[in-house]
């Protein structure tokens, strides 16, 4: 998995490539923790995300809670979108 971060003003764009699962999520968690201060909004760019597990969903949901809903998902493929729907998370996240 590869993660790129870009911060502009108080908006953090997190581009994730590969698979977000229990073995790769800790890396994302650390990066989010390092960059959460002074962040008011996160955009997760999932154009190159192949799969997200429940561990990945938890980190997304935690981000959502931390930033009071200011979390947007871009470019999720059908597998990832289905997972949002299957888990009931589709109504929570702004998925584009």
């Amino acid at each position: 998995m590869e993660i790129k971060l870009q911060k502009e003003n108080q908006k953090l764009t997190v581009t994730v490539c590969g698979r977000l699962n229990s073995s790769t999520v800790p890396e994302l968690e650390v990066l989010l923790k390092e960059n959460m201060e002074d962040t008011k909004e996160i955009v997760f760019d999932f154009h190159n995300l192949e799969y997200i597990s429940s561990a990945g969903l938890r980190v997304l949901l935690a981000s959502y809670k931390k930033l009071a809903g200011k979390v947007k998902i871009l470019g999720a493929n059908s597998t990832v979108t289905d997972i949002f729907k299957i888990t009931g998370m589709a109504a929570i996240f702004d998925v584009d």
């Binding site: 989010l32 923790k33 561990a55 938890r58 935690a62 981000s63 931390k66």
Partner: peptide, 8 residues
């Protein structure tokens, strides 16, 4: 450890 997600 992931019970309490770090940045929360």
């Amino acid at each position: 450890a992931d019970r309490n997600i770090q940045f929360m």
